[in-house]
Write a protein that binds this DNA or RNA. Structure first.
Length: 926
RNA sequence: GCUCCGGUGGUGGAAUAGGUAGACACGCAGGACUUAAAAUCCUGUGAUCAUUGCGAUCAUGCGGGUUCAAGUCCCGCCCGGAGUACCA
């Protein structure tokens, strides 16, 4: 009888569950290792084969680390708040909690059959009051903190209040929304409301009227990373700019630390690069231009060296100066333009980037160095959200300024000659010379300097003369934190005479109230406003917004360390032990969302002393996407006749998606196809060699394309171990690749061959107690070494190949010796835990496989029967000679001396000291 | 446009420190077993030439370079993917 996974796999899953094999507890005798998967949002569609890819990889690593003697924390949970459940609720009236619960149960079932080694006792759900209590608690702490730029950390807001009362805010160096200077006396004279408004400018969680991304289709605002190309990421609905009073998190305060922190992380370069770009640090200078009315206009530039090339200024349409500087005769035109520009949707604006529009204000600024009059224009190519919302235009060396100058006939003045070029006539230019290197000309005291030197020189000049200063700008924006939605964490905030106050920690969690409908109220209030008695006992109304999807995932990795603690976010003991995540696996789509917010919140929690590490995820691996492989049948136009793939070119055909579950290796199951839908009931086929071959294409895995490969079906057909191995075998973990079931048979064969290693010709279990032969040991040792090396560098696909080679070789020599099979069972257990457990128990053990139960076995110890010795060739580059144990030194000398002129041992040790003899020489060049 | 990552047989992919390119698997072809099929096992499988045997030559997107030695390092192109974008 063959290996019966249908019996074996549930047996061991039950065993692990009952014995809580993977329960993690703090223990001082072992080093810790924390392996985490990005927890899933439990959608109604269930898991497809793409989801488990990362889970299997992390499980292999977790199991491997356990074997290596680590105390492994490997938890799982659910990111349970989110839009789909709420939209389902709007359609059906079913409470999102019910939908979510149902989906979670399905997910759990699907995860369980894969044999993943999670400690389910630590499960968390973001919608569980026990959990979101701490999401709300974090919000309160953010609200009660400001960011001190001098100390480079978050501090209690009460400190700030003391300083305000003592000396006003003139000397405060803190991250803030609006610089507005006041004295201590003024502070005391402010009303409660005014004080609240001022403090709001400093809080790390703050209310403000800001331009937000409003999506009317979803009825909510969205964060910048939830909007791509002017439409929402979820649903693809149009998004417009709108001013609303919203909660935001002052992530910008942490911009520099978020940037610096990347250097210490073991992430891929591309992911770090994405975050760096998103933070968008640029060094440059602020320059003051005086206006003719005496006011000062500040601009930011990274190219201060081109200051002499300024021929006009441009303000964004939202700029506050516009009203004051527009001349009477231009007023109407300016107002018309500003109104038009402000009302344009984000989408329109982005779609028409190339279109140059603008209007002249009629006013002039004075160039700080040449004292020339510089006209001030308004254009929407200048963004309100970056720098000061105003630019000094240098058309000769900036393509946008150049386009604008051409469109409105403004002068172009060259001030940089690019390396290797001659000075040119700017009137003949058709594009700007965006030269980042070259020599400065036409620029008074900068003439002749290289661009880089000129920048340093001019910045020094600006600050020495009080007309500017060197500064740094970040592209990162504060995170808008309110959502006008029901299914999310309520804000622990109420309004006392319009002034926001946070709930006391003892009042948490503030439970999500019940509502009769999940839609906004008639007056446009969020759904929570429908709740009866949605106010404090004193009658103060609660905030009616909820937190966004990322709120619950910001610090979940920390909560897993101590998930049942009701009095602390995490106990000091638990946090000191588990520290942070050693290995985090998930998709790269979270690069600018979750992964950035999460780092920010962790740094905040570090500042307030909750956690001991200020980075949450030390090593991060992005598993690639698994794309779908769709199958097609070809219907001859106007008939109900279907023609096989290679014959289709003879006819005019329409390709039709068919469910991949009716197709096996591109061969269509004709009966199932006929039964699939009534229109196919009497389909006729034109076959090739008796088969109907389907066409195929790589597309996104999606229900509507009938190409979703469900892991349950594959486990049912091949077993979990085979699926696990195959998902790893498919290719490098980080790479995106199409799902293709073709190769799974080969992996299935491997499992059966492995099983045959310890069964005799009649398929009876048989293991010999004889000592392993040298040849067998060699195969084993080679496998142990390579598999470990591969796991360490996350080349799990080649690990699987190594096992296959090992089993092929052992199969050839009919190995069934205990001394080989025992270590092999242990080694294979991370990849194929069920069959390993089964073999293990057949060998006479009935506990689960663990390092602890087999302490004398350290896979690392078994490697040393080959020996690589470094040598130099021609005194230059290095290579190695591989040696095998137990051979005579004469043979070494003979081999080496034959090439004596070429090979020298690098450390100069004489040959006679060697106790190894060369087995082969790696590519010796004579 | 800018930034990052890639490009290896019919296919997925190996090659870990510059050192035998193509491991392993799929697919394909031939064979064994079988009344037959499936399953299983064996053999072959980068290309070209030679195949009576030894083999020989060319091959890692293209063109150069460094080196005794390049898929790997350097320079210049071409192509694909990802991120980002009036960011001053």
């Amino acid at each position: 009888m063959d290996y019966n996974f249908r019996e074996v796999e549930p047996k061991w899953q039950k065993y692990w569950r009952e014995h809580k094999t993977f329960k993690a507890e703090i223990r001082d005798d072992k080093p810790k290792y924390y392996v985490l998967d990005m927890f899933p949002y439990p959608s109604g569609a269930g898991l497809h084969v793409g989801h488990p890819l990362g889970y299997i990889a992390s499980d292999i690593f977790a199991r491997y680390k356990r074997l290596k003697g680590f105390n492994v924390l490997h938890p799982m949970g659910y990111d349970a708040y989110g839009l789909p459940a709420e939209q389902y609720a709007i359609q059906t009236g079913q409470h999102p909690a019910i939908t979510t619960e149902k989906n979670i149960n399905r997910y759990r079932q699907q995860l369980d059959i894969l044999g993943l080694s999670y400690d389910w006792d630590r499960e968390i759900r973001t919608c569980d009051p026990k959990y979101y209590k701490w999401t709300q608690w974090t919000f309160i702490r953010l609200f009660n903190s400001y960011y001190c730029n001098d100390a480079q950390q978050a501090r209690p807001i009460s400190e700030l209040e003391e300083v305000f009362a003592r000396e006003g805010n003139a000397d405060i160096n803190a991250a803030n929304s609006q610089p507005f200077v006041f004295t201590a006396e003024e502070w005391h004279s402010f009303s409660v409301r005014e004080k609240s408004d001022i403090l709001m400018n400093y809080r790390l969680a703050y209310l403000s009227d800001s331009m937000v991304n409003w999506c009317s289709e979803l009825g909510t605002v969205l964060a910048n990373d939830e909007v791509v190309n002017g439409v929402s990421v979820r649903g693809g609905y149009p998004v417009e700019r709108k001013s609303m009073r919203q909660w935001s998190l002052r992530i910008t305060a942490y911009a520099e630390r978020l940037l610096q922190g990347l250097d210490s992380l073991d992430w891929t370069d591309s992911l770090k690069e994405i975050q760096r770009n998103w933070i968008g640090k640029s060094r440059g200078a602020a320059v003051y231009f005086t206006l003719e009315n005496g006011e000062r206009l500040e601009v930011f530039t990274t190219r201060a060296d081109t200051l002499f090339g300024v021929t006009f200024m441009v303000l964004c349409p939202e700029h506050e100066l516009i009203e004051r500087i527009t001349t009477e005769e231009r007023k109407e035109e300016v107002e018309t333009y500003v109104r038009w520009a402000k009302n344009r949707s984000e989408r329109e604006r982005q779609a028409e980037v190339k279109k140059v529009t603008g209007v002249f204000t009629g006013s002039y600024a004075i160039h700080p160095l040449t004292k020339e009059r510089v006209p001030i224009w308004i254009s929407d190519y200048v963004l309100a959200g970056y720098g000061t919302g105003a630019v000094m235009a240098v058309p000769a060396h900036d393509s946008r300024d150049f386009a604008f100058a051409r469109a409105f006939n403004l002068p172009v003045k060259q001030v940089v000659v690019p390396d290797g070029e001659q000075q040119e006539d700017t009137s003949a230019w058709t594009e700007s010379k965006d030269s980042k290197s070259g020599t400065v000309v036409n620029s008074s005291f900068l003439d002749g300097l290289e661009v880089k030197q000129a920048i340093d020189r001019i910045i020094k000049y600006l600050s020495d003369n009080g007309i500017g200063y060197g500064t740094t700008n970040y592209r990162l924006r504060d995170a808008i934190f309110s959502r006008q939605r029901y299914w999310g964490e309520p804000f622990p905030v109420y309004y006392k005479d319009g002034v926001p106050e946070t709930l006391g920690v003892d009042k948490l969690p503030l439970l999500l109230p019940e509502v009769d409908k999940y839609l906004p109220t008639a007056s446009g209030e969020p759904p929570i406003a429908r709740a009866k008695n949605w106010h404090t006992v004193e009658g103060y109304p609660y905030d009616c917004n909820t937190m966004p999807g990322f709120a619950g995932s910001n610090a979940y990795s920390i909560r897993y360390m101590d998930p049942d603690n009701d009095t602390e976010f995490v106990s000091k003991q638990a946090n000191d032990y588990w520290q942070n995540v050693d290995l985090y696996i998930g998709g790269s789509e979270h690069a600018t969302g979750h992964l950035l917010y999460s780092r920010f919140i962790t740094k905040f929690l570090f500042d307030i002393g909750v956690v001991c590490k200020d980075e949450p995820y030390q090593k991060l691996i992005n598993q690639g996407m698994i794309q779908g492989r769709s199958n097609f049948v070809y219907r001859i136009k106007g008939t109900n006749r279907y023609v096989s793939y290679n014959l289709k070119d003879k006819y005019e055909t329409d390709p039709i998606h068919v469910d991949i579950n009716m197709v096996d290796n591109d061969v269509l199951d004709l009966d199932r196809f006929r039964q699939w839908r009534s229109e196919f009931n009497d389909a006729e086929f034109e076959l090739e060699e008796g088969k109907y071959i389907c066409g195929h294409e790589i597309e996104k895995m999606s229900k509507s394309l009938y190409n979703v490969q469900n892991p349950d079906d594959l486990v049912e057909k091949y077993g979990a171990d085979t699926l696990r191995l195959y998902e790893m075998f498919l290719g490098p973990l980080e790479q995106s690749k199409p799902w293709d079931t073709k190769g799974i048979e080969g992996v299935g064969r491997f499992i059966r061959k492995f099983w045959k290693l310890y069964h005799d010709a009649d398929n009876n279990f048989f293991v010999s107690e004889a000592e392993p032969s040298k040849e067998e040991l060699k195969i084993l040792h080679k496998t142990i070494k390579k598999v470990q090396d591969d796991i360490e560098r996350f080349s799990l696909n080649t690990s699987v190949s190594t096992f296959m080679i090992c089993v092929n070789e052992l199969g050839d020599i009919k190995c069934n010796k205990r001394g080989i099979l025992e270590p092999l069972a242990v080694l294979l257990s991370p990849f194929a835990p069920h069959i390993s457990e089964e073999l293990w128990s057949l060998l006479g053990h009935d506990d689960s496989i663990s390092f602890a139960r087999f302490p004398e076995f350290d896979p690392g110890m078994l490697v040393e029967n080959t020996f690589r010795y470094p040598v130099s060739i021609n005194g230059k580059t290095r290579t190695y000679i591989e040696f095998d144990i137990n051979v005579s030194k004469e043979e070494v000398e003979k081999t080496v001396l034959a090439n004596g002129d070429i090979i020298r041992f690098m450390d100069g040790k004489p040959l006679k000291k060697l106790i190894f003899v060369p087995k082969k020489i790696v590519n010796l060049v004579v």
